[in-house]
């Protein structure tokens, strides 16, 4: 929260005193010149999506997305600097150039894409929806029965706005408790300051694992909004947009074609399917087209982290504390919404 003042102040100061911004292609050029990608992730931690381990090395779904982008740019997953941001500090941090990309469960909306923010959302990595968590003992079964409730919610989020919309739409009143730091907010809910806790479903599932007694809390079945989460970058650099988008698409395509961390080398050696040969760089041209370090960028990424499905199952899936079903986040051929444009 203090950090947020500083960032916001810096953003304002940068407008007032900073140098005038440069031409297109500038972000990718700056990243290459610096030698590292600065990636904004939710701090202090967001289980499953981004958590630092005891050595301070970040891991998680959002973190691997950034590392995959680093492979595309530098052919090296370690050339990423992770910057923890909050829901409030993330946009000033991005506008200001403190980070190059946000991989922090940020929802793609019209006003963020256009308007005064001017961000780009190259590709959706997670289809989420806002959900509501309640203590089991309150015996609430539907979000419609929440009139008069006190709600714990983070500021500066689409969540905060959807919440107001939802209660208004159903003629119900609520009392918000708005705290920026997710840890403080969760503690307030855990102590009973709020009746309900609302966030995107996946984030809520992640927070539930950190409650003192996760089994005492249920997430209601309603999804009160659409939350397409995407890596977020500044507008104005088409080359960087391409790299981010086609990194995500490579992960999705790999799952569609059945390419996994284990079999990627073998498939690259034996594949006859021209789509697979292009994706893995056996037939050259695709990597160069998007401005990647080399044509084998997709192969290197899959070798490092596996395909989309493997990343999902490793950090978020049913065998993790989060226990998420694939749901919408499955390949389109299996009934999900993940559908990548062809790499050709």
């Amino acid at each position: 929260m203090i950090r947020n003042f500083v960032l916001a102040g810096l953003a304002a100061a940068a407008f007032v005193f900073g140098p005038t911004a440069a031409e297109a292609g500038r972000d990718l050029d700056a990243i290459k010149a610096r030698g590292t990608l600065r990636c904004g992730v939710q701090g202090p931690s967001n289980p499953g999506f981004g958590v630092p381990n005891a050595q301070g090395v970040w891991g998680g779904f959002n973190v691997e997305v950034c590392r995959a982008i680093a492979i595309a740019i530098f052919n090296d997953p370690s050339k990423v600097e992770f910057v923890p941001v909050t829901t409030q500090s993330r946009f000033p941090a991005l506008t200001n150039g403190e980070v190059d990309v946000l991989s922090s469960n940020t929802t793609w909306t019209l006003t963020r894409d256009t308007g005064v923010n001017r961000f780009n959302f190259p590709a959706i990595v997670f289809y989420d929806g806002q959900a509501i968590m309640v203590p089991r003992r309150l015996n609430v079964t539907s979000a419609r029965g929440l009139n008069g409730a006190t709600v714990c919610v983070q500021p500066g989020t689409t969540t905060e706005l959807n919440l107001a919309d939802f209660f208004r739409q159903h003629n119900m009143t609520f009392r918000p408790v708005v705290i920026e730091a997710l840890d403080e907010l969760r503690r307030a809910y855990d102590q009973g300051r709020c009746d309900i806790f609302t966030n995107d479903f996946a984030a809520l599932a992640a927070q539930r694992t950190l409650l003192s007694n996760p089994r005492d809390h249920v997430i209601l079945p309603e999804r009160i909004s659409k939350e397409p989460l995407a890596p977020t970058i500044r507008q104005g650099d088409e080359e960087f947009t391409n790299i981010v988008a086609w990194t995500v698409f490579a992960l999705i395509d790999a799952e569609e074609f059945g390419i996994t961390q284990a079999n990627v080398d073998q498939i690259a050696g034996s594949a006859t399917d021209p789509r697979i040969r292009r994706l893995l760089g056996v037939e050259p041209g695709m990597g160069t087209a998007i401005g990647a370090a080399n044509d084998q960028y997709a192969r290197t990424i899959i070798k490092a982290f596996g395909n989309y499905g493997e990343m999902f199952e490793r950090h978020l899936g049913v065998n993790t504390p989060l226990g998420l079903e694939r749901g919408h986040n499955n390949i389109w051929t299996k009934g999900g919404l993940l559908y990548a444009p062809p790499a050709r």
Binding site: A8, T95, V116, G156, E160, V178, I179, A181
Partner: peptide, 21 residues
Amino acid sequence: AIGYPELVHVSNTTMNQTGRA
């Protein structure tokens, strides 16, 4: 930090929703 909606708290939210830092 503790969610009392005074000026800076509301300003932060406003800044975030409008982008008018």
